[in-house]
Design a protein around this nucleic acid. Structure first.
Lengths: 221, 221
DNA sequence: GCCAATAAGTAACATGCCGCGACTAATGTC
DNA sequence: GACATTAGTCGCGGCATGTTACTTATTGGC
């Protein structure tokens, strides 16, 4: 254990699983430590400092841009952290696809991650489930996109998060009914095919808001 | 700061928000500390020990029964913990209604909690949201009930969690379609009215399992 | 120019789920 | 035996979703 680690004996790390949708796959930002080992970005928790704020600052430091959305995961003391820290608090964040990885780090597909310390490997493996858990009540999918996006882009992100193909007409009908997006007067030319209109995330009030019903459909797996 | 607290300087607590459905309200188990102050049960995190396991053991210790379901909340360093601990990891657990509070503790309605330390007050306030977050993908409602329950009991728990009245016929139709319960040959007499059949939670395989679709309905609030 | 290929966007029908009211069934009370 | 009370079911109408087919707009090849 290094001198740095012993200074922090008994303390906790804040670990960041930064996610981005790239080429139809979910990617995670992995940095290279001094020795060349692959690690997720982390920082030490400071007594009295807000953990979520620290995670946001870490995202800005490592990425040069703020995370568009962030959620805390389950703190864990299991398995080995790169630092040997006893306790780690994971934060899962998302950014748009235009954010490039700074030098010393790279986006890796969540299907083919490099060798991480076991605790960080578990955090990365749980990231998609964390996004799925919150995507119905938080604009996770929209935060994985730039401010202006096409409806096909949005559908692809939902397909990525759900792990399932969706039907275009149904998707757009449901989206329309939810009053979540407004069209802009910009159109994107993709090369071939008809240009696509760009939309913005702009949720509006809706009657019957929050009156959700029972959902048994996910219970029996 | 006491000697005990300074021994644990920089360490983390595991805090337990034990929930139970009583008389149509969600209740939380609150214990009385030596000085008479109201506190949620907590323990100190031990290096190398699994946090979830520690939370389960804490539940058994304080309640004399295992928590029927348990989930981790977001670790927090904000506000004041009764011990002055820098970091706390909340766990939200549920038990059935037959579990009585041991001496030195009591069930309090989440609407009328006694004065807790600010950090624990926040944990208790977040408990219902945590249950709501997981009730669609985990059998939270069923774990708030005894092993054998009536469908009216189950509906009341769902109404409690959703904060909304449900229609009997719709509720039962959806439940039937989900293959989640099986009838027993026991019936419960409530005093007046027709006796109710008792059911058990016994989820069975279902075709098209896990093929969930988009849900925009909770997004715009 | 004209046509095929490609992708965006729309229309219309079918199916299924859900809210709702009305009904039946079984028990205790007066 | 009438009534209140609670459990449980039936069926209709409306709304949401799945699906297929169609229209529109662009690029590229001949």
């Amino acid at each position: 254990m290094s001198a740095k680690n012993s200074r922090h004996r008994g303390a906790a790390t804040i670990d960041l699983v930064l996610c981005s949708a790239r080429r139809g796959r979910l990617h995670v930002l992995v940095t290279r430590a001094a020795g060349g080992a692959a690690v997720l970005p982390y920082t030490w928790a400071v007594d009295g400092a807000d953990l979520a704020r620290a995670a946001r600052e870490l995202a800005r430091d490592v990425l040069g841009a703020s995370a568009a959305w962030l959620v805390s995961g389950a703190a864990t003391a299991e398995k080995r952290h790169p630092t040997g820290a006893a306790l780690s608090v994971p934060y899962v964040g998302v950014v748009g696809p235009a954010i490039e990885a700074p030098v010393g780090s790279a986006w890796h597909s969540v299907d083919a991650l490099p060798a991480l310390a076991p605790r960080q490997r578990a955090m990365a493996a749980d990231a998609l489930d964390a996004l799925r858990l919150h995507m119905d009540s938080a604009p996770v999918a929209f935060r994985l996109l730039p401010a202006a996006f096409t409806l096909s882009d949005l559908q692809q992100v939902y397909e990525l998060l759900l792990g399932r193909r969706l039907h275009k007409a149904s998707f757009r009908r449901a989206l329309q009914a939810a009053y979540l997006v407004t069209p802009t007067d910009s159109w994107r030319r993709e090369g071939r095919g008809r240009p696509a209109q760009l939309f913005q995330y702009a949720p509006r009030k809706r009657r019957g808001g929050g009156a959700r019903s029972v959902r048994f459909d996910l219970l029996g797996k």
